[in-house]
Amino acid sequence: MFRRSEQDKRPQVQIFVDGAAVAARQGDTVSAALLASSYDVRRSTAVSGAPRLPYCMMGVCFDCLVTIDGVGNRQGCLVPVTEGMQVEIQKGKREIGK
């Protein structure tokens, strides 16, 4: 859906999405890194289970909710990637304790 422009010379940052290594760039938000990856990163909603991807990328729509380093329902569009970050795509309601 999106690809990186060749002029992007930022250093790579490796994150893991549901265990799979994904090459992100320093300064990417989690949501941007997910959308730039080739993976199916659709979450499903807590209400009906409908699939969603980020919509606004500016912190207002909450369609980018994602589990980051074990903590559920983070706004992926507001969190920068860090080396080794573990990202999980959420399916349905968040589990308690996550």
């Binding site: 990186r4 422009s5 760039r25 938000t29 941007a32 890194a33 959308l35 991807l53 919509y55 990328m57």
Partner: peptide, 15 residues
Amino acid sequence: MTAGAAQTMLKSSAL
């Protein structure tokens, strides 16, 4: 998505 979302990705991540 919103156009703004695409623009955000373009500006901040050259996507």
